Simulated assay, not measured.
Amino acid sequence: MRSVILAVLVSCGLAGCAARRETVVVSASQVEIVDDGGAGQVIRPADQAKIDALPAIWQAAWGKSPGRARSREGALLEPAAALDHPELSPGSYNCRLIRLGGRAGTRRVRNFPTHFCYVGAADGVLNFTKQTGSELPAGLLYKTGKRYTFVGALQRAEGDNSLVYGADQARDVAGVVERVGPFRWRMVMPVGEQDLDILELTPVPVERQAS
């Protein structure tokens, strides 16, 4: 393994209602993180272990979720639904959080309102920002086969994306992004041994994209 220094400065705009439009900046400087040996992938071993355990975590969470929820959400919640050609285009996305497992409560599934996310690009690397809502992951996306590996941090407030992966391990998040249908992706973040946070990503219509 080798240590690397990550330096990124990304600016992106939020699409949607005019009242919601704002500029969000993601910045990182002199943050030391660990390369797991993958092609350009930078991630701590503990977070890589969570991703490696994702199939077992997913089966545990999915198997205990109500059949009605699985039927309603379709491929979004199916463990093996990832499709080829996962490429994400830079721009604004609608993103909806679905929580699976014990953290979701007695029903094992909890849906949250739709918010806005943004995918940008800098120096050949995609970056992701959840711009609105109560939980705000932001970080980088590394292409790994037919999915992306996401490494980032939970931000403290909308518009304040000063936290980067590696700065505060308690706020670090990691997961994968997969395509599960036409213009439909999911970001899957394992939490603990039997819980998942799944973000459904669908592009904001072209006419509402920030210029």
Rank of each mutant, 00 (worst) to 15 (best):
A121V: 09
R103S: 01
I98C: 11
A75H: 15
V42W: 04
F112A: 03
D84M: 08
R68N: 05
N94I: 01
S3A: 14
A7Q: 01
S92N: 12
P90L: 04
R44S: 00
V4I: 14
V4C: 03
P86E: 13
Q48I: 00
R208A: 10
T23I: 12
G67N: 13
G13H: 15
E73P: 03
A81K: 12
Y142F: 15
L201N: 01
A69Y: 06
P190M: 01
Q131M: 13
G175H: 08
T129W: 03
A82F: 14
R208P: 04
G37A: 03
V180L: 12
R107T: 08
A122F: 07
P86D: 13
Q59K: 13
A170W: 06
L9A: 04
T23V: 13
I57S: 00
L100W: 05
I98A: 06
R186D: 06
G159I: 05
Q169Y: 05
A80H: 12
M189A: 05
T114G: 02
T106F: 10
G152M: 03
G124L: 15
P113H: 10
L100G: 01
G101F: 02
G192N: 01
S11W: 12
Q41C: 07
V109K: 12
Q48K: 13
E78V: 04
V176F: 04
E178D: 11
P137T: 01
F116N: 12
F112T: 02
V24R: 02
D160K: 08
Q30I: 05
A167Y: 01
D84A: 15
L88S: 07
T149L: 15
A104R: 07
G139L: 04
D52H: 09
E200A: 11
I43V: 13
R179A: 07
G175C: 00
T23C: 03
L14N: 05
D160Q: 06
R20K: 12
R103Y: 14
H85Q: 14
G101Q: 00
Y93S: 04
R156Q: 08
R99D: 02
Q155R: 08
K143W: 11
E22F: 07
G37K: 13
S134P: 00
I5G: 05
S27Y: 03
H115W: 06
P55A: 07
G181W: 05
V8G: 01
L126F: 09
V177G: 05
A53D: 10
L6F: 08
R156I: 00
R72E: 12
L83W: 06
S29A: 10
A75F: 13
D52W: 10
R70A: 06
L201M: 11
G192A: 02
Q59Y: 09
H85S: 15
E78P: 02
C12S: 10
L196I: 08
R70D: 03
D195N: 06
W62H: 14
R99H: 02
Q59S: 07
G38R: 15
